[in-house]
């Protein structure tokens, strides 16, 4: 497989000398689904923020990835992120938001695909409501539908399951699993089921480092649970 992004010896911090991510190595292959698991405070959101170009205080060990790589316009055009909590563009309706995002990414809107996604997420009655008026779950659907419709090379999802109803969660799993046809998904989650059902690769973050990686047949709830149990024991 070809690497989409290779991160070597990534250190990130909020207070100098206290690394939240500590010499973290991660290779994101093209067309794969990577699940990111870890306890609260393990550094999952910080890692996603670094990849989004939102975290200022970080250092990379590998010389072929320049410091501003994550803020480069070309990289941005190939990446979309769904935050765990989001209230941006609240005065847009879904239809306006998705049109705005496609225009910004200089892509042609695939209306057929959007309609399909709307159907899948059972969202049709909310598409003309201002985003700020929507409930947490419906707001999440706005950004998820946009992300899946945009089909960028890299789709980052920070805790995408939060706030979604049962039916939409099932739809989300299906979409994540199918996304590798178009690009790579990196998503963080607290829900074991979400990674076991969708990911090709599961990485466990512990104290800012990747302590375990599971691939293909190794990905099952028991293996991962055992690994997280060890992590919890180590933290005691």
């Amino acid at each position: 497989m070809t690497a989409l992004t290779k991160i070597e010896k990534l250190c990130a911090w909020y207070n100098e000398g206290n690394n939240v991510l500590d010499s973290l190595d991660l290779t994101l292959e093209k067309n794969t689904v990577v699940g990111l698991l870890g306890l609260n405070g393990a550094g999952k959101t910080t890692l996603i923020n670094v990849l989004c170009g939102l975290h200022n205080d970080y250092r990379l060990g590998n010389s072929d990835t320049p410091k501003n790589y994550f803020r480069d316009n070309k990289f941005k055009e190939n990446r979309y992120v769904v935050f765990s909590e989001d209230d941006s563009f609240g005065f847009f309706t879904f239809d306006e938001y998705i049109r705005y995002v496609f225009k910004t990414y200089k892509k042609k809107l695939n209306t057929e695909l959007v309609e399909e996604l709307i159907e899948l997420f059972n969202f049709s009655s909310y598409r003309s409501v201002m985003i700020k008026e929507l409930s947490l779950g419906n707001r999440k659907k706005v950004y998820l539908i946009t992300g899946f419709a945009l089909r960028t090379d890299l789709l980052l999802l920070d805790e995408p399951v939060n706030g979604l109803d049962f039916q939409s969660t099932e739809a989300l799993y299906k979409l994540i699993k199918e996304y590798k046809e178009y690009g790579t998904v990196l998503f963080s989650s607290h829900i074991l089921e979400s990674v076991t059902l969708t990911a090709d690769k599961v990485v466990i973050l512990e104290n800012g480092k990747i302590t375990k990686t599971f691939e293909k047949d190794q990905i099952n709830a028991e293996n991962i649970r055992n690994s997280l149990d060890f992590e919890r024991d180590d933290n005691k």
Binding site: C52, G53, L54, R71, N73, K76, E77, R79, V81, F83, E85, D86, D87, S88, F89, G90, Y100, V101, K103, T104, Y105, K106
Partner: peptide, 19 residues
């Protein structure tokens, strides 16, 4: 006034022309 809007604009490409 909107932290998430600020972040979204940073994350998305072509900020100058689109926003």
């Amino acid at each position: 006034s909107n932290k998430k809007l600020r972040e979204k604009l940073e994350v998305m490409p072509n900020k100058m022309s689109s926003f």
